[in-house]
Write a protein that binds this DNA or RNA. Structure first.
Lengths: 344, 344
DNA sequence: ATGAAAGCGCTAACAA
DNA sequence: TTGTTAGCGCTTTCAT
């Protein structure tokens, strides 16, 4: 099957190399022949074979996108399709394709990465997660293979290109909002503690609390899974304390839903009894009850920019290491309210 | 860069073709040499170049996954990462890679498909949506290119391999559940009306209503977008009717959240005032208030099976057209309750 | 401005 | 059981 460059060459009465040049829009080919060749291509329904092309130029015009392993339900987070959409937009623009590795366990993810890299399937990789001591990251660094992280690397921050929000600042701002509303007992519920994003958001929270000279008991940091049971445990523990919090900084909208649900089971309601703030501004956070006060981290933009960095880098070896901080914007909605007398 | 098959051959003292055979685990190579070659591969850190391989065998060991265009927010539906996970699981097992096309507008999606197909980037395609008069589907059929649909084709049902649930039956069962609970005024809220899935679920609903000899006023079918405003419009209209429904069959969990939210704004609550049933059993539907009575359509399995069909097909031209119906299971939770006196 | 020819790294007849 | 050789379809020197 398949009409090749030779067929086109024959039909247009030129050499294959000329056809190749026409494809590349080489300026040293006369407009005359270009037209003739293009017509031949069209008539024959010619489409370049990418495997052949890639073999010849040793590149693949494709980038790999690595999702975290899906031991938990984290992958059901709409965050992923949304970054993917951002990445896809830039990739499409530049005629790159997207290879994705979707979860499985950690080992499988690693295997996928190795397949992509070793098999020359992709020119670069985007990591959709960042955590401490990640063998994948280590592998990529050792190979000197181009990659960018959506999020912030835990180590070697200056040698890795990454696209992130200022999570520390955002988290601090969120916490301060609660403080401004009169809350004095504010707890933090984060995701997996080895994720950089959790660490940063926890730090921002801590900073704000300290600066306001509020108490910061160790029992006020909880880590919940996205899974219901996990979230419930965290909330139950928190609200069984002598002084339960009246304000919550939660690291992810999806977790907030679980938290609100558990609160209701405990007979507490949001925002009357406890104010909740969180992160991501998923489409969902606008339509639930109550709508969430949350940080819009611009997921799409995170994806778009990461693709841009990576593709620019694969096109130009000299492109320097970059750090791109995507601005965030807090959406104030109904999950937070001024602390009223009875709770003080 | 890159150590090639020749290097390995030289080091092992054999011909390149022998190395190739070892890679393919050809049975006519002595165990002796296999071992020697494998050692050489390991010592040299050899990895086959897939572009070269694919060029030689005219295949790519990759499948394309096409998401719907993302004009709306539909892509934020956790359905997608979840099917992707299922597809990825089977793909990984069989050492296939995944190419994805993520949204953009319809034209861009189509371009992506053409790129994948014409450029020999993939051996087959999985369509994650199905709707009437889809140019992509048409293109694939004309080309005779292997593809499978997650969902049900609108035309040429017998010539296309697809993986779906029995949506008609599920929807009927859901509706009957409401009827059994005493509801007599049941409305349907679907997604985009050109999607097959919407059509099927609407039909199941209608059938149940008719069989129970209940009324079926035209105003009882609403179509909502995933976007909040759309869902709100539908709900507001429905509940402004002379006889507002007390039961709802909603085509997607995500839409149900919007519906519940709008209801609350109207001063109605679920399940006290209106019972809601829906589809998908997203992780979310379990943790919100109230937890949803919803059809578990086994999203992961839909993905897994579609990948299986497609990969089996690409491996064997003779593989017949298939239809796979993944069983569903209704999860009864708290969004539905017996109609009490006051609402009759 | 264009052509000839040598690869890119691998597979697959065909020989031996 | 293994080696030789001719491609797969494209790009890219090097000539002309």
């Amino acid at each position: 099957m398949g009409v090749t460059i030779k067929d086109v060459a024959k039909k247009a009465g030129v050499a294959p190399s000329t056809v190749s040049r026409v494809i590349a829009d080489n300026p040293r080919i006369s407009l005359e022949t270009k037209k003739r060749v293009r017509k031949a291509m069209k008539d024959l329904g010619y489409h370049p074979n990418f495997n052949a092309r890639n073999l010849a130029v040793r590149s693949s015009q494709a980038i790999g996108v690595i999702m975290p392993s899906s031991a938990d339900k984290a992958l059901q987070n709409p965050f992923f399709p949304e970054v993917l959409r951002g990445i896809g937009a830039y990739a499409h623009k530049t005629e790159y394709s997207l290879y994705v590795s979707t979860g499985g366990n950690e080992e499988e993810v690693f295997e996928e990465v190795k397949r992509m890299v070793n098999g020359n399937r992709v020119d670069g990789i985007i990591l959709l997660y960042s955590r401490i001591a990640d063998p994948v990251q280590q592998f990529l660094i050792e190979k000197g293979f181009p990659f960018v992280i959506v999020g912030k690397p835990q180590e070697q921050e200056n040698e890795i290109t990454y696209v992130d929000n200022d999570n520390v600042k955002a988290s601090k701002e969120l916490t301060n909002h609660l403080i401004d509303l009169g809350h004095e007992h504010i707890a933090f519920i984060g995701g997996a503690p080895e994720l950089t994003v959790t660490i940063d958001r926890l730090n921002g929270y801590k900073t704000a609390i300290k600066e306001a000279n509020l108490e910061l008991p160790a029992e006020y940091f909880a880590h919940a899974e996205f899974l219901k049971s996990g979230g419930r445990d965290a909330v139950e523990q928190l609200f069984a304390l002598d002084i339960p919090p009246t304000g919550l900084v939660v690291a992810d909208d999806l977790m907030s839903f679980g938290v609100i649900s558990t609160l209701e089971e405990l007979g507490l309601s949001c925002p009357e009894d406890v104010s909740i703030t969180s992160f991501n501004n998923l489409y969902l956070s606008e339509i639930t009850t109550p709508p969430l006060t949350t940080v819009d981290i611009q997921i799409y933009m995170l994806g778009f920019q990461s693709a841009r960095c990576l593709i620019e880098r694969t096109k130009n070896k000299e492109e320097p290491v970059k750090r791109i901080i995507v601005p965030y914007e807090i959406q104030y909605r109904q999950s937070t309210k001024e602390l009223d007398g009875k709770n003080r």
